[in-house]
């Protein structure tokens, strides 16, 4: 900002701090809850400071899980979620980067049609086609498998369009220089296009990883075996105690653990991520 007035600075900070508080408060409450014993939540007042049961709660969840709700140890579910999120993110990126490459750089018959087909799938997210998709996956015998968890979610029109946009910003001269330099299509793709879209791929990876990690409805539908429960769907099962009260302290501990991988991904790729979203130099 070019303005340099103390009052504006103060206002900006107040608003930003308020925003941070609004976002952070629930996380804090969840963390506090995960460090108390089972009875502390039933007294009517919610404690605002951490209690003494941190080690006990977390080691319990990591070790055994919550047998009463039929969920396995947190580690298993985390691993399932991780596999699912990685497969979705990597799969989506590979497929969309290749289809964008085809659409932008090749003149093939029915190119326009292919483009519009991809475009139309934008209007058909998983939630809309969930019943037929479930039918197909069930018929193919992919219930309770990683393939069933990931493949139906992999195709992505949004990512294809993003890469198309990125490729369109790469100057024609660069393509022509590569042609004169004797780079065939795949070489051009590998040596020029991929490195130039590196930051966009990173940004997209972060977004898609979180998208995959947060998948809820689809895993809930197609996993019936505890071996394939994902963490997000698992948390719901835990909160859904059939007999008796939900064990909030354990649910919250699981929720805190579930937050770690996305946070690690965001922090680890932060620099590339920001660059990918703001960078214009090509």
């Amino acid at each position: 900002m070019i303005e340099n007035r103390p009052f504006l600075h103060l206002m900006a900070h107040v608003i930003l701090i308020a925003g941070v508080c609004i976002v952070a408060l629930p996380v804090w409450v969840a963390f506090v809850a995960s460090t108390h014993g089972p009875t502390d939540f039933m007294r009517g007042t919610i404690p605002m400071w951490p209690g003494p049961h941190f080690v006990q709660n977390y080691s319990r969840m990591l070790d055994r899980g919550l047998a009463t709700s039929g969920t396995p140890a947190v580690g298993t579910m985390m691993l399932n979620s991780l596999i699912m999120a990685l497969c979705i993110a990597v799969g989506k990126i590979v497929i969309s980067v290749l289809s964008a490459f085809a659409i932008v750089y090749f003149r093939f018959p029915f190119r326009g049609l292919a483009f519009w087909c991809i475009f139309i799938t934008l209007m058909l997210p998983v939630e809309v086609r969930i019943v037929p998709t479930f039918q197909v996956v069930a018929d193919l015998g992919m219930l309770n498998s990683y393939a069933g968890l990931t493949i139906p979610l992999i195709a992505s029109a949004t990512a294809t369009f993003l890469f198309r946009q990125v490729f369109l910003t790469i100057p024609d001269e660069l393509t022509e220089a590569a042609r004169i330099d004797g780079a065939g299509p795949m070489k051009f793709f590998r040596d020029i296009l991929l490195p130039l879209s590196r930051t966009n791929i990173a940004a997209l990876f972060v977004i898609l990883f979180i998208y995959g990690w947060n998948q809820y409805l689809w895993p809930l539908l197609i996993t019936t075996s505890a071996d394939y429960y994902t963490i997000v769907a698992g948390i719901r099962r835990m909160a859904d105690a059939v007999d008796g009260l939900p064990q909030w302290h354990l649910v919250m501990a699981t929720a805190m653990l579930a937050m770690i991988p996305p946070v690690v991904v965001v922090i680890g790729m932060q620099r590339l991520f920001v660059k990918g979203l703001v960078e214009t130099e090509k």
């Binding site: 100057p171 001269e173 220089a177 020029i192 130039l196 590196r198 130099e281």
Partner: peptide, 14 residues
């Protein structure tokens, strides 16, 4: 067997 020099140089930025 030709080489071309472009107006905007077209160097590979990476």
């Amino acid at each position: 067997d030709i080489a071309m020099v472009f107006q905007n140089y077209a160097l590979y930025p990476h």
